[in-house]
């Protein structure tokens, strides 16, 4: 038994612990496929509707070149679809299991919390990518867009690096139900909604009032959108987006440890005050 205790959590076995969460989330996702369909339809409708605004703006204007605006809005809605998928998946880490009633059995298992959260994040990111790719593919049927300018390498790099800090934001939102069992999940949805306002999803952040731009500055989603638009609209390569990538990486380096620390703190707060679960 000493060997179990001593030799745990190295290499493969640590990865296997994280993968247990990925596998569980996949099973849940299969059982709730109806919801996936709802989100997919919602995502497609939202994407098409918002992008049609560009067509509306161009209507009646002679020689209007709206292709830039179409692409700008399309990217905004797709990135938002991705962000909300990832934020929602990961930030339900506590709330979902509270609802199922499994929370205590999961949290008492000998899994270091960071491996638990890593598994949730890996699934959330994969899930978000799949859903967004589907929305993108379907939305393309509605528009005639020239993607000749897209720099794929820069695009992939921005998505990957940005996802790390998005996961960290989601973990911070997900710990709120540990602190506030009744209202935590509402609060965590408000965190998500605020990102929509300040990050320049549908407009350049410069149009925001100055005091709100402060929040744009500290939202990783702002740089995420910047990077994606640079790679997809302006065709910038890896070297051109290096600055944005650097900022996103810095967010990751700061926010990942911060979110893990905060989660652990919230968990121990819940265990001190009996807020994990009351009944039984």
């Amino acid at each position: 038994m000493a060997s179990i205790a001593g030799g745990m959590f190295t290499g493969n076995s640590a990865w296997a612990l994280s993968m247990a969460f990925v596998e569980r989330q996949t099973n849940l996702w299969k059982r709730y496929w109806g919801w996936e369909l709802v989100w997919l339809v919602y995502g497609v409708v939202n994407t098409v509707a918002i992008t049609l605004i560009a067509e509306q703006v161009g209507a009646g204007v002679v020689d209007a070149d709206i292709s830039g605006l179409v692409l700008f809005l399309l990217i905004g809605t797709l990135v938002w679809a991705y962000l909300s998928a990832v934020l929602e998946d990961i930030s339900l880490v506590i709330e979902w299991e509270r609802w199922e009633g499994t929370i205590e059995h999961t949290l008492m298992a000998p899994v270091p919390r960071w491996l638990h959260l890593l598994g949730m994040s890996v699934f959330g990111i994969l899930h978000g990518l799949v859903r967004t790719a589907l929305i993108f593919a379907i939305a393309l049927l509605f528009f005639d867009i020239d993607f000749g300018n897209v720099n794929l390498l820069a695009l992939v790099a921005v998505v990957l690096v940005a996802s790390v800090s998005v996961a960290a934001v989601a973990i911070l939102a997900g710990l709120l139900p540990l602190l506030y069992p009744e209202r935590g999940s509402q609060m965590s949805m408000m965190v998500q909604a605020s990102l929509l306002l300040v990050s320049g999803v549908y407009y350049e952040v410069e149009v925001l009032p100055a005091w709100l731009q402060v929040f744009s500055f500290i939202s990783p989603a702002t740089y995420f959108l910047d990077g994606i638009r640079a790679a997809m609209i302006d065709g910038q390569g890896l070297a051109d987006v290096a600055g944005t990538l650097g900022i996103l990486a810095l967010f990751g380096v700061i926010m990942v440890p911060m979110s893990l620390w905060a989660f652990n703190w919230a968990e121990s707060y819940a265990k001190r005050t009996g807020k994990l679960k009351r009944t039984g």
Partner: peptide
């Protein structure tokens, strides 16, 4: 790692099968 527990309420992922539940809850014990 040395402990496990049965709680008064069964507490499972309701839409997953018994096997899927057991797979998850035992995998997180390594």
């Amino acid at each position: 790692r040395l402990i496990n527990r049965v709680s008064p309420d069964p507490s499972f992922f309701k839409n997953m099968s018994a096997l899927e539940n057991l797979l998850f809850f035992a995998r997180i014990y390594g």
